[in-house]
Design a protein around this nucleic acid. Structure first.
Lengths: 156, 156
DNA sequence: ACCGGTGAGTAGGAAATTCGGACTCACCAT
DNA sequence: ATGGTGAGTCCGAATTTCCTACTCACCGGT
């Protein structure tokens, strides 16, 4: 039985418990960009080296990154995303989109992604079933766990 | 001129500076579900009350939430997402999807979202221009800021 | 008038994390 | 022998978080 003071069971919370610590998603960003070496990560992210080391251990343990040598003698390593790591990338794209629109409206984006269709890549989140772009007011939440409810719609 | 030890300029980092602290995205989750009252947030998120209070101040200052009275005498407040807050929801959906698939493969999702098309909502991130589902290997990153490069593709 | 309960926080001190810089260790190049 | 690089580790100081308790305003019942 869950102690009644436990927080809502939620996959978002679970995911954030793994990748929600400071720097973790930035590590994933760099690694997805192909910058997987320790010193590159330190420079590009701006994280303290010891914190970065613990984050990397955690992400490797979680199966989001792998650490592989790109040189024996001298031993040198590189971190790369696993399949699970690559599947987290959509989160980065949608965060980037939001940041570009809400925090960089003036200054312009510091990074353009190009899709292989030839256009600038702007992510849109759609419904797998019908293909439509998803909107808050067209979604209804159904908790599956007894005791947890949701309030009414929360439009602004 | 940027001191050369600054981290990579990046909208993802900017966004995470606002909403990347512990609990912030869970606050947004609850608020989007319509549970916007302080004590609901405490219970559903499991955050310490003082930390929650500072997160709420920050999110309101950032224009992601608004605080509005739902009762004068006694004064009672409710937090709701602004338009900017609602536009962050896709990040939550994609995180949920990842968590459901990678962390809840056995136990099942604790929350089903239903799209107004009648089906269970499973988010898919697509390219606005061509409508295709986005894949890592079909994207190319083009930094816009001199001095910042990316490595080669980083497939697993 | 008194009592208990609710909502929305504040206060305070202990515990845990983060930060920045220096340091290590192995190896290679000159 | 000296210097440089990559990948970390170590340490003490600074910052955050956590937990529990407390406040304050109001309401409802007796």
């Amino acid at each position: 039985m869950a102690a009644s003071k436990d927080p809502r069971p939620c996959s978002i919370a679970d995911a954030l418990a793994l990748v929600g610590e400071k720097y973790s998603l930035l590590v994933l960003r760099e690694v997805c960009l192909g910058n997987g070496r320790f010193d590159q990560l330190v420079r590009n992210i701006g994280a303290p080296r010891d914190i970065l080391a613990t984050r990397l251990r955690r992400l490797v343990d979680a199966g989001i990154l792998t650490k592989r040598p790109y040189s024996e003698r001298p031993q040198r390593f590189e971190y790369r995303p696993t399949q699970a790591g690559l599947e987290l990338e959509p989160v980065l794209w949608t965060l980037k989109e939001w940041g570009d629109r809400h925090l960089r409206a003036d200054s312009g984006t510091p990074m353009v992604l190009e899709h292989h269709c030839g256009n600038e890549f702007v992510p849109v989140v759609t419904c797998r079933a019908c293909g439509e772009e998803a909107r808050h007011q067209e979604l209804t939440a159904h908790p599956q766990v007894p005791g947890w409810t949701v309030g009414g719609p929360a439009a602004a």
